[in-house]
Design a protein around this nucleic acid. Structure first.
Length: 818
DNA sequence: AGCACGCCGACT
DNA sequence: GTCGGCGTGCTC
């Protein structure tokens, strides 16, 4: 009897992305289980590779055509994956056309991996006819008979070094020792601080001494914070660590080591809260859902609950029910809502059993949380998208709050949707999957409407809070009446009134920066990014033009680069411009702005919101990040400055996004005792998504939208596959794109349904980061046909693409089609 | 990514 | 002959 094991390698390369069969040696039988981490000999050279066990099996006969090798070593006694994660890993690989390791990485804490360290030991000191070999022996003797392989290679410095080492090993002159060291789980972290006073830094930036926007962003962030880890800097600035290194080299910043604080919530105490007595609506939902938990089968349910209807209390009581039955729970929330206030609600109910996972945890913190969860010390996990993979056992419920949020869709490989992962997990674990939203996604509502899942409704606002009064202002009329400002007369009047009443106002605009483009009025020249097919955006705070896609930046020109005319101006409206305008129009009022630019530094998001609330700032201006979370009892007026700005984006979700956004922004008004009002400015006042949002009419919106989706053949009636092919040479990209297109068309001819294939054509964002982009769209009812087509393309063409520096991204039902 | 293997030209 | 450089193919 032989025991064999299936092993996948911790190597993301496509070519050996397989489950390899290895023999389990007699003495390791007790240690090798599905989920353990091992070292296996791999390749002709039997190099040591790290891998994970996907499964084991006992077989009588080995009837493989090739000779199996033995597993060399078990790395640790941790079971990294359980049965469901292994199954999910296989499923993800197929569904998202990624590698096993891409999928595995989602389920493992960061920093898992081994580094191999090889050293060379001299065992036979002989004279050798070969000069290089003699040289190596000399170096080894000098080092006391042992030397690290890499050091040795550096000493010898010859291209043929490894050839000799192999020969020496064969002739038993040397012995190669290999050790495996876990990649450091840092307890200390390297942080960076500004090395020069802020005004010197500013001077360097303004004097064009520092020109890379990455570097400027890093410095801007460090100006706010005393010090930040390099990992955090790169995360918040979007710059790579190399730009941080350059700054250090040039002496603008310096590094030091700092102890990592492990539990981000240590030191906070939480008052224990007890369950509230549910309202009538809540009780009804709970009654039904609790039966489902009790029964213990796989169920899906949509909780359609308006803002403020008390969804969180329902969540808490359902989790409690799971708890009482020894089961665990996952709560997914959009990253933006992971505020201390939100966390507090869970912590105060479940205390230390709650683990919080979000993107701002350091690798060490993440690892700690992962271990605590896996060891059963934490049974409630609250977190953003990736928390859906939390290694909980006996899962009772997964809750996806704000189910329609786009942040649940990953934009990097594997491009999963947390909803789909949750569904796989819950069905494998017989758990309840609860979606919650005030504005459910059309896809989810459709499934509920068709009876594929239970639909719970909580449409009353508690304490009889009245819905804010919503008014639409047609900006075309304003223009006709000679009002060229960005505030309609009505809105300006209401803002003034609010300032007098010392009540607060939120102004919402979906565009950051100062204005959208810079144009020369004499010759019509517009400032474009040299790397992207995008107009540069003017940013007033540093008098620069920035590309929002690649970060390219130049100083704002005083004269037109083409015709030298001085009448080059910026047009359009961004949040920065609104801020200026507000200050000019409403004398002496206090203003605060919240967008990507002002929230780059750590915790600044939180700080801005607290300042706004506590200092009773008159007006807050922001992009969509202000749309959710946070109750501001004193906000009585919300102004949406350009409600139609998203409608013409060429995206089948444009109406849905508009509806959701307006509904959410409007929900910010009148959360306290005072009645709220909302003013919506738009050039397109007839659009149904704006009208229904103003009437707080989800059903009206849904009924209209679902008909459109059916007529036009969009999800949920079809699946849409998008392939973007990109690369530095337009010709090469387009010919390769054509080949992809032909392959798809050919493949689809063999399918039972007649799918539609569009393209290849230039992507709407045709040139980004110096790469030309071509796009192919497939519309197809059966998602498996798209998956199969994608898989075929990958297998057939990836090698060729590598050769031609062509990149390809494939996504099914993406949130971003551009 | 390594490494074996094979081919070829340069150097002694 | 031997050495060194380079292209190709393979990984249970």
């Amino acid at each position: 009897m032989n025991r064999i094991a299936l092993v996948v390698l911790s190597d993301s390369s496509r070519e050996y992305d397989k489950e390899y069969t290895y023999l389990v040696p007699e003495d390791l039988i007790e240690e090798v289980h599905p989920g353990s981490r091992v070292i296996v000999p791999f390749g002709n050279s039997n190099r040591n590779a790290e891998g994970f066990i996907m499964g084991t099996e006992d077989v009588k006969e080995l009837n493989t055509s090739y000779r199996l090798k033995y597993i060399k070593k078990v790395l640790d006694d941790i079971k990294w994956l359980d049965q469901w994660s292994i199954a999910l890993c296989r499923w993800m690989r197929k569904r998202y056309i990624c590698t096993y390791y891409d999928a595995l990485k989602c389920m493992l804490p960061p920093g898992v991996g081994v580094k191999s360290i090889k050293s060379v030991i001299l065992i036979k000191n002989t004279d050798h006819h070969n000069q290089t070999i003699c040289e190596i022996i000399d170096v080894l003797i000098e080092n006391g008979g042992e030397c690290g392989l890499e050091e040795l290679a550096a000493y010898i410095d010859k291209a043929t070094f490894s050839r000799y080492i192999r020969q020496m090993e064969k002739e038993q002159i040397i012995l190669i020792k290999e050790e495996f060291i876990n990649k450091a789980k840092e307890k200390k972290v390297r942080v960076a601080s500004l090395a020069l006073p802020i005004d010197v830094i500013d001077e360097a930036i303004n004097g064009n001494k520092i020109r890379s926007i990455q570097q400027i962003r890093v410095l801007e962030i460090l100006k706010e914070a005393e010090y930040l880890s390099v990992a955090d800097i790169t995360k918040f600035s979007g710059a790579s660590s190399s730009s941080v290194n350059t700054l250090q080299k040039h002496g603008y910043i310096y590094y030091k080591e700092v102890e990592v604080k492990r539990d981000p919530y240590t030191g906070r105490t939480y008052e224990r809260s007890e369950a509230f007595l549910p309202t009538e609506e809540q009780a009804e939902v709970l009654k039904d859902a609790l039966v489902k938990i009790e029964t213990g089968g796989f169920y899906e349910a949509l909780l359609h609950g308006v803002t403020g209807s008390g969804k969180t209390e329902v969540y808490l009581q359902l989790i409690k029910a799971c708890f009482d039955r020894g089961m665990s729970a996952i709560v997914l929330v959009p990253e933006i809502s992971l505020t201390p206030q939100m966390v507090e609600r869970f912590k105060s109910r479940f205390g230390d059993e709650v683990a919080v996972l979000h993107s701002r945890l350091s690798a060490g913190e993440r690892y700690d949380q992962w271990r605590l969860i896996r060891d059963g010390k934490k049974r409630v996990v609250v977190g953003a998208r990736s928390a859906v993979f939390a290694p909980l056992e006996r899962l009772g419920i997964i809750i996806i709050d704000e189910e329609h949020e786009s942040s649940y869709k990953s934009e990097t490989t594997p491009k999963y949707h947390a909803r789909d992962i949750a569904r796989e997990r819950c069905s494998a674990n017989n758990a309840l999957l609860l979606y919650g939203s005030a504005t459910p996604s059309v896809e989810t509502y459709y499934r509920a409407a068709r009876g594929e899942m239970v639909l719970y409704k909580m449409l009353d606002r508690p304490n009889n809070a009245v819905l804010p009064k919503v008014e639409i202002v047609d900006m075309r009329n304003e223009l006709n009446e000679g009002n060229r400002s960005m505030f309609s007369n009505k809105l300006a009047q209401e803002i003034k009134k609010n300032i007098e009443l010392k009540q607060q106002t939120i102004l919402f605009l979906n565009r950051r920066g100062y204005s959208s483009f810079v144009i020369c009025r004499s010759c019509g020249f517009t400032m474009k990014c040299p790397n992207c097919s995008i107009n540069l955006t003017y940013h007033a705070n540093n008098e620069r033009l920035i590309c929002h896609y690649c970060g390219f930046t130049v100083k704002n020109p005083v004269s037109c680069p083409k015709c030298n005319s001085r009448s080059i101006r910026h047009f359009g409206t961004g949040t920065q411009k609104i801020e200026d305008e507000v200050r000019k129009t409403f004398d002496g009022c206090s203003v605060i702005r919240m967008d990507m630019d002002t929230t780059a530094a750590k915790d600044s998001h939180e700080k801005i919101l607290t300042t706004f609330k506590e200092k009773n700032i008159n007006i807050m201006i922001g992009t969509q990040m202000i749309a959710k979370g946070h109750d501001f009892p004193n906000v009585t007026l919300v102004g949406v400055l350009a409600a139609d700005s998203m409608l013409n984006l060429g995206d089948f979700r444009a109406s849905e996004k508009t509806f959701q956004l307006i509904t959410q922004v409007a929900g910010r008004a009148g959360r306290g005792q005072l009645k709220g009002r909302v003013i919506i400015q738009s050039y397109n006042t007839e659009d149904f998504s704006i009208l229904t949002a103003c009437n707080h009419d989800y059903m009206g919106f849904y009924k209209h939208e679902i008909l459109l989706r059916e007529k036009l053949g969009y999800p949920p009636f079809t699946n849409i596959g998008v392939i973007i092919i990109s690369g530095p040479d337009d010709k090469i990209v387009s010919t390769n794109a054509k080949e992809v297109g032909e392959t798809i068309v050919e493949f689809m001819e063999g399918c039972d349904e007649k799918p539609e294939v569009y393209g290849p054509m230039r992507a709407p964002l045709a040139f980004i980061k110096k790469k030309y982009r071509w796009r192919i769209i497939i519309k197809c009812k059966d998602i498996d046909n798209i998956i199969d087509a994608f898989t075929l393309i990958r297998d057939k063409l990836y090698k060729k693409f590598e050769k031609y520096f062509v990149e390809m991204s494939m996504d099914i039902n993406p949130f971003n089609m551009l």
